[in-house]
Design a protein around this nucleic acid. Structure first.
Lengths: 207, 207
DNA sequence: CGACTCATTGAGTCATATCAATTGTCGTGG
DNA sequence: CCACGACAATTGATATGACTCAATGAGTCG
């Protein structure tokens, strides 16, 4: 109850069908929402950065309809449900902040859907890098490089194959928008990247 | 204030940047959430059926980050914000129902993202038809046929071109999963369609 | 014996090439 | 707005080799 928990990379924080008693909050590392299709392929539907909640909605919907997995090693705190409900009732500013968080999650989801449907994979990747850059900056967790995902993890979030993920990452490198060293990605020209990915931060509702 | 409103097909109910004073609820017809990219292409991110709210989130996020448009002629009621807030405070069951509605919206969004990223367009369309069938049945608004969308509207929700939308609709017709007469689509074999589209209604949280 | 180096191995990932399938673009006519 | 054809671009499928890194275990030296 109410403890810190370290989750190894590539393991689940919460699994589909669970009805967790605590609410989970990512403190460090990168986690994701994902589903596995009947043929075994994986689809990542959200990246959870430090400060993001994993399962605020379970109180209402009673069970998880997707999994939460750690992409890198993660540190997660578990907040007991009754403490949370108390905050929701008696601390309206916190309640409002949590509403805000879930609504921004939804806005990000909408933007990802636009990216997935209407942007070519290279532009989609540019857009994703911009989003991660802005989100990490907002939470103060940016030490220069973006969180280092493998090509497979990247592919699963872009809805493409690992081979193609490699191709499109190479495009951004060749254009010198980003530099890649090993698994680490550094943004070299944010403005160019934002233009290439048609990125407009309005949907993140930061201002 | 608090009135009924009829919205003609192809016109907006709410536009991006608006901060509407009333909350809008679709009573009849089909509306959609959509964005327009900088190059003019459109992406539809949600279909709003009778009973769906358009803008429950604006109270928190203060402005719309997307548009709501009528795909067919729609009837919409506007609920004054103060009445809504009163219900949220004093009628916890209604408040819970509205929470539930926005969380299911989010779950649908996640499933669409999976479809967009990981399912070929023909399977994606099969999945969408199944979802519409189930959602309309749940709300009792199914008179046998699915709401009749144009190929362009369909293409914008699937993230493909109208030409390709025609191709994949033809696939489902050739397999005799659906029959198309003019703009009207009838499901002939739901089970086959669900299997083809890898459809599992769990994410709709109806049970 | 114990502590240390240093090949060896194998899993996982990255990089690249080739060919095939899906999807987009353009054009034409109903 | 629908239907359809021809061609082009994007993306997927499959295969192969290189590279990294952790684990293992043999050998060396104190």
């Amino acid at each position: 109850m109410g403890g810190n928990r370290t989750v190894a990379a590539r393991t689940d924080v919460i699994s589909q069908g669970d009805a967790p008693q605590n609410v989970h909050l990512v403190m460090a590392g990168v986690a994701c929402r994902y589903k596995v299709l009947s043929d075994g392929r994986r689809a990542i539907m959200a990246l959870l950065l430090p400060g993001d909640f994993c399962d605020l909605h379970v109180a209402i919907l009673d069970r998880m309809d997707h999994n939460i997995g750690a992409l890198t090693e993660c540190s997660v705190v578990e907040i007991p449900r009754d403490i949370l409900e108390d905050m929701l009732l008696h601390h309206p500013r916190i309640a409002r902040a949590m509403w805000w968080a879930t609504l921004v999650d939804e806005a990000i989801l909408r933007e990802w859907l636009v990216s997935m449907g209407r942007r070519r994979a290279d532009r989609q990747l540019a857009h994703l890098y911009c989003e991660l850059y802005v989100r990490l900056n907002a939470v103060g967790g940016l030490d220069g490089d973006l969180p280092s995902l493998t090509l497979e993890q990247l592919a699963d979030t872009l809805g493409i194959t690992t081979v193609h993920a490699h191709r499109v990452q190479q495009v951004l490198r060749d254009k010198e928008f980003v530099s890649v060293q090993g698994r680490s990605v550094r943004i070299e020209d944010f403005d160019a990247l934002a233009k290439y990915g048609d990125f407009d931060p309005d949907y993140l509702h930061l201002s």
